[in-house]
Amino acid sequence: MLTQTIDPRVKRTRQLLMQAFVELLEKKKNVSSITVQDITANATVNRSTFYAHFEDKFAFLESWMREKFQEKLKDELPNGTLSDMGSLRSLILIVFDFLFCTRPYMTLADRQYEPLFQVAMQKELYDLLLTWLSEQSEPSVSRESVETAALIASWGIFGAAVEWSRHPQLKSAEDMAREVLVIVAAGLAPVIG
């Protein structure tokens, strides 16, 4: 995960907008019913402030999803990094849990935002896996192979989590994560030995 130095005023304003959105989400219970006007009114800032920080509602939502997912990773993954197959298993469960917890806020009207959220989360997974695989890969493995392994693993984990989150009553997260880990580990074996 890339960390950047951000002006504290920018950070505060973004946090204010994010908090306003979360409060509205708790009240309205879905993403599509919340407008930029709702967010700015709840945050007590004007619309131009919103647009100074985000291109549009889609950019805001992508940033919100990415930040929430990063927070969950930092809270639940030791040091916010991967170190072994045990931490990879933890990562898989984190993704499953995150999608399970966010699914209630996604209504049929919110389907337009799903691809946006998917790309944001998959990118975070990819970055995390790429960092780990780059450190763990055999010296003979090319950078392209490491990148491909991270790409396939990130989409595999994320895709399985999305499908499971749609019908979590069919199989426990633990059982599903165990199955995903076996497949992902097998796919990563040529890269990390």
Rank of each mutant, 00 (worst) to 15 (best):
K57T: 03
H53P: 02
R89E: 11
S87D: 10
K57G: 06
L61Q: 09
N46K: 10
E67N: 04
M65F: 13
M65W: 03
I94A: 04
H53S: 07
L77D: 02
I39L: 02
F58C: 06
N42F: 11
Q37C: 01
A43K: 01
L88D: 04
L99T: 02
V95R: 10
D75R: 11
E55N: 12
E67A: 08
H53A: 00
L77I: 12
F60W: 06
Y51D: 00
T81G: 08
Q37A: 10
S63P: 03
D97G: 07
L91E: 08
R66T: 09
M85H: 14
S90H: 11
S48N: 14
L91I: 10
N42Y: 10
T49E: 00
M85L: 15
D38C: 03
R89K: 14
C101G: 06
V95P: 03
N79D: 14
S90I: 12
R47V: 01
S33N: 05
L61S: 05
F98T: 03
T40K: 08
E71F: 13
F100Y: 08
I94W: 09
Q37E: 10
S32G: 06
Q70E: 11
H53C: 02
T49Y: 00
T102M: 14
L82S: 03
H53K: 06
F54Q: 03
L77N: 01
K68L: 14
E55A: 11
D56N: 15
F60Q: 04
I34E: 00
V45T: 14
I92N: 03
F100W: 06
L93E: 05
E76K: 12
V36F: 05
F98L: 03
I92C: 05
E71A: 14
D84V: 09
Q37Y: 12
I94Y: 08
M65Y: 07
N46T: 10
V36K: 01
Q37T: 11
T35S: 15
E76T: 08
L77P: 00
L77F: 07
L73A: 01
A41M: 13
R66N: 06
D97M: 06
D56I: 06
S63M: 13
E67F: 03
W64Q: 08
E76P: 01
T40R: 11
K72H: 12
K74S: 12
W64G: 00
K74L: 14
F98Q: 02
A59Y: 05
R103M: 08
L73T: 02
E62C: 02
Q37D: 10
A41D: 15
F50N: 00
N46C: 12
G86K: 10
K74Y: 14
F54A: 01
T40I: 15
T40A: 04
D75H: 06
A52V: 13
E67W: 05
A41Y: 04
G86M: 09
Y51F: 15
P78G: 01
E67M: 12
S63H: 13
G86W: 11
I92R: 04
R89L: 09
V95L: 09
C101E: 15
E71D: 09
M65D: 02
D75Y: 08
L99N: 08
I94V: 11
Q70W: 13
R47P: 07
K72M: 09
S48G: 03
K68R: 15
Q37N: 07
D56C: 05
F96R: 01
Q70G: 09
G80D: 04
V36A: 09
S90R: 13
K57M: 12
Q70V: 10
K74H: 14
E62D: 12
T49M: 05
R66L: 09
F96T: 01
K72I: 15
T35Y: 07
